[in-house]
Write a protein that binds this DNA or RNA. Structure first.
Lengths: 254, 254
DNA sequence: CGCACACTTGAGTAATGTCAAAGAGTGTGG
DNA sequence: CCACACTCTTTGACATTACTCAAGTGTGCG
């Protein structure tokens, strides 16, 4: 256990870890070729963080890059009066840390669940980019995806009402974090109602009421805490007016 | 005049144009060194477009990159039922076109004013990136800025009320599009109330009422159509709760 | 078992949206 | 140059949505 309270696995452990890593075939790692991945692996440190741990704070220097292996991280910005906007959630395969290395973080990041990441210093990452210049294009494409995702978030916040907002969020998370180990209509939702509210630009009460309404209408079920089952996907899709949910490879948190 | 109704200046004209170009010291062009700029200049075509001309449509192929020299472009996405979210405005120095070249456009783009751009095909741009690989990093930084700007837009949409939204927009535009030829507290606002409403996630009527309220309170003045004067910047800044407005180099529209 | 903390539900309120109409500004064609 | 048509803007009256405040109900953890 390190001084900041996180478990760390260095060098060889991390190398072993990559073989069995749940994120190997996901997100950022899946976009790297063997040589690039081997190089990164060399310097990677695995970090296991408890729930509700702050990874970085807005406007404070943040000199690490994390690739999320397991768990969920929320990104947010605070207004001076305490209002908060969650700008995104990161899950397996997503990246936390600015490509504009060594600069101050643009938002705060906090773990929602226990989180396992693979991380390196900005220095390592800079050397990595020098050695594998084609990765800059990979990152540029990922950043482009992130911009498109932000636009979809803007539509959610600007054009949708409470029901549409929640329906869209459930469909997106179901799509992004679905895995073979989970039934296709089930989704992992470890965030609190307050987190969801701050992402959707609603109050906690409105989110809660909308959940209750969806349950009463048979659109969803909540078999246990942190899990939602979509019981009527077509109706949810109709609500947001599209036939399918936008696809997305990697999310970047900065 | 070309088949699509735009004026075009090719090769030599564009080369001449760069020397006196208003965007030379702005945005994307200001981030390129002499060699890179000379190369691009070689293939650049100047295009002059009338007001309300559609540059590209969501989900349709768009194979050009434009650097905006003069004028304003709006970017938006449409919902199936006709609701519209404007995701951003582009001005001098900003880029229109996805770095993920040759792909379908992610949003629609329409000129708000008459617009003069410097443009090239995606093919030219791909060759350019091959020849000047360091530009990939420049674009990555620009994309990072764009992500940060999107987060600020999310705060606007999710946390702010009508007054705060308008105050923030006025301050941001005053900061971004200010030039020496204009008094520091004046700002160019060629967009319709409807454009502003769709950017801010409000109805036209609410935007109009908020403008009227700001004028009545002496916060702003509208000396003539398309121009706003900030008469009490400190009060507007207090409204959004910050001491200054976030800086931004280039905007990218995709 | 009891204390937090998160979630739900209800009642009343405030902010913003909707509908409607009139006024201002702009451009066009006679 | 004026008259007309069009669009954009403003304002009013009313409806609706979502927020606020408040109380009560789980749920997990020490």
């Amino acid at each position: 256990m390190t001084s900041n309270g996180n478990y760390c696995l260095t060098g060889d452990d991390a190398t072993q870890g990559c073989q069995i890593c749940g994120a190997r075939g996901l997100g950022f790692c899946s976009l790297l070729d063997g040589a690039a991945l081997s190089y990164l692996r060399e310097y990677a440190v695995a970090e296991l963080m408890a729930r509700r741990r702050t990874l970085c704070r807005e406007d404070e220097p943040f000199d690490r890059i994390h690739i999320i292996h397991r768990g969920v991280v929320k990104l947010f910005k605070l207004l001076p009066d305490g209002r908060r906007q969650i700008t995104g959630f990161l899950g397996p395969g997503d990246i936390l840390g600015s490509p504009k290395l060594m600069s101050a973080s643009h938002c705060s990041a906090q773990t929602v669940t226990e989180v396992l990441t693979c991380s390196f210093t900005a220095e390592v990452f800079t050397d990595f980019l020098r050695r594998f210049p084609e990765v800059a294009m990979t990152l540029l494409f990922a950043a482009t995806d992130e911009i498109e995702a932000s636009h979809d978030h803007a539509i959610l916040l600007g054009c949708h009402n409470a029901r549409e907002k929640l329906a869209a969020l459930l469909l997106i998370l179901n799509h992004r974090w679905n895995s073979d180990s989970r039934p296709p209509d089930e989704l992992f939702l470890p965030m609190t109602r307050s987190d969801l509210a701050e992402y959707l630009g609603l109050s906690v009460e409105t989110v809660s009421r909308t959940f209750s309404a969806f349950k009463a209408e048979g659109l969803i079920a909540t078999p246990r805490s942190g899990v939602v089952t979509l019981r009527n996907r077509p109706a949810l899709l109709r609500m947001i007016g599209f036939d399918d949910v936008p696809v997305r490879n990697v999310a970047i948190g900065l």
